[in-house]
Design a protein around this nucleic acid. Structure first.
Lengths: 156, 156
DNA sequence: TATATATGTTAGCATAGGCTAACTTTTGAG
DNA sequence: CTCAAAAGTTAGCCTATGCTAACATATATA
């Protein structure tokens, strides 16, 4: 073993945990990406049902900025995952599980947006950044955000 | 045109912009995802060069929590994108462009972590959340974060 | 210096999530 | 009630990013 290698080994005792923790962090991000599609869809479906009484693929496609066939494909995935129920050519419904997920997502979204606004960020940027950020915020961080928002409101 | 449809149309005048803006937001997130791989790699490569003098695929794989062939494949993509230079079986270097990107990423990472810490979040969570969040923070929001960190330091 | 071990690459596969073109079903206007 | 337009689906393609198994190269020590 050369000096260089020994050097690396010694460093690694100190940084093995670092490396492992880092790897877990990246794994967490990759997992988040895998559930992002589901989260975006159920959140949007809930929103559409609320504002216009039903969620149609064409509206989902428009809001997500994708083409209808993409929506069809992803809706079947969500159906397989037990988050939505629906029959061909008919409107889309959320299962109880889907509703639960949607509600959790909407809560996170609201908190993140309110938090960004409380920092003085403009609405459009807040909405846009929240869309990306919300999927990567742990419950711990979310609670910290919530606390800031509450404090800002108290000071009103 | 039925009442329901008229209703939708009327609503849509008010929400067309909404829908469009929302679609753009999702498009922004999708684009961010496409550059995440590049950002994570160059950031990590710069870090490895700094702490151990060189960036080897095996170390990158360990830190990212992926297998070596995945690193090989992604490094060639980065090479095609002009972010790294390297010869087969040799260590990895960043091109000037890659260095610039790495520096920007590390700045963002530092700011996001410092910001989360200033909210009282524990280090591990801060690091982990930052990893996911940093790719979705606009310059506007980043500056707001920076301001909070600075203020927290002043109050020290 | 020879060779075992560590590192790196290639080939081939899988899944996610986009797209277009072509087809089917639903819907609503006349 | 019919039939055209709107909505939805299917088929087939593409790219990104993972993986394993098998092979190639580099390196460090005996």
């Amino acid at each position: 073993m050369t000096k260089l290698q020994i050097h690396r080994r010694e460093a690694s005792d100190a940084s093995d945990r670092d490396a492992k923790a880092q790897a877990e962090g990246f794994a967490t991000v990759r997992q988040a990406h895998e559930s992002e599609m589901a989260e975006d869809y159920v959140e949007l479906i809930a929103e559409l049902i609320e504002i216009q009484g039903e969620a149609r693929p064409v509206d989902i496609a428009e809001r997500l900025g994708v083409k209808p066939p993409t929506v069809t494909k992803n809706i079947s995935r969500l159906k397989e995952a037990g988050l939505v129920s629906r029959e061909r050519y008919r409107a889309i419904f959320l299962t109880p599980e889907g509703q639960k997920l949607a509600e959790a997502c909407r809560r996170r979204h609201r908190i993140v947006v309110a938090f960004l606004l409380s920092l003085g960020i403009d609405e459009e940027t807040a909405e846009r950044d929240a869309e990306g950020i919300e999927h990567h915020v742990s419950e711990t961080t979310l609670e910290a955000f919530e606390a800031v928002v509450t404090r800002a409101h108290e000071k009103h």
